[in-house]
Structure formats: C-alpha cells, structure tokens
Amino acid sequence: MAEAEFDIVASDYAAQHARSIRFSGEDVGYFAEYKVADARRMAEREGLTVNRVLDFGAGVGNSLKPLRQAFPDAHISCLDVSERSLDLCREQLSDRISFHAYDGLHMPAAMGSFDFVFTACVFHHIPEELHVALLEQIRRHLSPGGVFMLFEHNPWNPLTRYAVANCPFDENAVLISAPEMRRRLVRAGFNHVNTNYRIFFPGPLAALRPLERSLAWLPIGAQYSLTAS
C-alpha cells in the first residue's frame, strides 16, 4: 500500500482489523499486547537496557500503549509513511514520544540510534525488493548491543491466510515465510537471528497457551517473530 492508501484506511483501520480476526476469539489489543510482552521478556532475558525504542511502521498506534507499559522510562519514536496514521497515533499517547513521517525508502538520519527497534506485521506491506535496504538502515540505527524484533504473519498457517485474504487493507499484502525473512535479515548484515513461532491456540482454547513456549519451533503458528542483533 502507498502512503495515500494508508491515509485513506487509517480512520477505519481498527474496525477492518477487528472484522478480519473475529474468528480468532480475540480483539486487536490482544495481538499487540502479546508481541510487546514477548519483547519485554526478550529484553529481560538479554539484559538489554532500553532507553530508546523505535516502532517501525507504528501505524495508528496499536503497539504504543503496550510499549509504554513495557518500557516506562524509554523515549519512543514512531515512524510511518502515513501522516494520517501518525495523527491517530498521537491521540493515543504523546509524552516522551516523537512522531516521524518518512518516504518509505529513507529513514530520517536525525532520529539517531535505538536500543530496541520493534516492527509488527509491517513488512508484508513493503515491496519485497526494498526489504534488504530497509533492514540495513534499521541495523545502522541500532545502538551497540541493540536488538531488532520483527513480527510477521506466517503464510504456512491456513487461518492466517484466511484472515489476510479477508482484510481490505491487506489486499496487496505479500506474506513472507520466516526462513525467507531470516535470509533477508542475514543479507542485511544481522549476525544473530532467532526464530519463534507464535499463536497456536484461538481464544476458546486460551487455557492451552502456556504450552506455546514449548511449540516455538513448530512452523504452523499464526505469526512468528525474528529477533536479531
């Protein structure tokens, strides 16, 4: 989707998203919150001090409140191609948060470096031929010892494919498998890339979710994360 397309869909984004995932038994907030909870656990496990966070492709701010709760002392920068989406993002929170529009090709150098860069289901909207160059830019914006964490839809999960096919703003989405996304990260210069598959149980089976950590190797989860440094 181009910048103008994101601007058009921004006001209806939450409703469209909710309709596309209703069969999961969860709301939009659940999917944002689990990702940030995973990020917080990763930071604690790695002993990562997080003073500056970049939400790459922040959109309308679904991850903003969870990020603030997970990293209460950090400055958060929200980057997106859609000015309208960033306007809605500002309505979520604005304290110790900066908002940056960009052209989808060149990350603003003035943003500086980050201890943690987070992106949630963004790259399937970006033309594949741009992925490696953008990933290289993200790597250059990491502070020494910083970590990049990417979440994406898993095309090997049939329910994920169904949800994407029935979501208007995903009309032009191109899903990427975890192994292929990992290869692109390596090509961009990341040396250590770990893969975890997520979301195996829908809302009605939520009691089984404690088992998910033992299933992270199984490539049928609805989404996956790649953690890289």
Rank of each mutant, 00 (worst) to 15 (best):
Asn51His: 15
Asn172Lys: 13
Ala216Ile: 10
Pro202Lys: 04
Tyr197Phe: 10
Asp55Arg: 03
His106Gly: 07
Asn166Gln: 11
Asn172Gln: 14
Ala165Tyr: 09
Asp38Lys: 12
Pro179Asn: 04
Glu3Asn: 11
Phe201Ser: 01
Glu44Gln: 15
Pro219Asn: 10
Pro219Thr: 05
Pro155Trp: 12
Ile97Lys: 01
Gln223Ser: 13
Ala228Gln: 06
Leu226Asp: 00
Arg139Glu: 03
Ser113Asp: 14
Ala207Ile: 13
Leu211Lys: 09
Phe99Tyr: 15
Pro72Trp: 12
Gly189Tyr: 10
Glu3Cys: 11
Ala178His: 00
Ile199Ala: 10
Ala109His: 05
Pro127Asn: 09
Ala15Ser: 14
Arg90Asn: 09
Gly112Thr: 08
Phe6Asp: 00
Gly104Asn: 10
Gly146Met: 03
Phe99Met: 09
Arg213Met: 10
Gly47Trp: 06
Phe123Ser: 01
Ala173Phe: 04
Arg140Glu: 15
Ala109Trp: 02
Gly57Met: 08
Ala222Tyr: 06
Gln16Phe: 13
Ser229His: 14
Ala165Phe: 08
Arg184Ser: 08
Met149Ser: 06
Leu79Phe: 07
Arg187Asn: 11
Phe99Gly: 04
Ala207Glu: 07
Arg19Tyr: 04
Leu48Gly: 04
Ala14Asn: 14
Ala178Glu: 01
Ala222Thr: 02
Val28Lys: 02
Leu88Ala: 08
Lys35Asn: 08
Ala165Ser: 15
Ser177Trp: 05
Asn154Trp: 04
Ala37Thr: 15
Ser20Met: 08
Arg139Trp: 11
His17Val: 01
Glu3Asp: 15
His131Lys: 12
Phe169Thr: 07
Arg140Asn: 13
Gln92Arg: 15
Phe31Lys: 00
Gly221Ser: 06
Thr49Trp: 13
Leu48Ala: 08
Ala173Pro: 02
Ala188Asp: 05
Asn62Trp: 06
Leu134Arg: 03
Arg84Thr: 15
Lys65His: 13
Ala110Leu: 09
Val164Asn: 07
Arg198Trp: 09
Arg40Asp: 10
His153Arg: 08
Leu185Glu: 01
Leu215Met: 15
Glu152Ile: 00
Leu159Gly: 02
Arg139Tyr: 10
Ala120Cys: 11
Pro144Ala: 03
Ala133Cys: 05
Thr119Asn: 05
Cys78Phe: 05
Gln223Thr: 09
Ala206Pro: 00
Gly221Thr: 06
Ala4Asn: 11
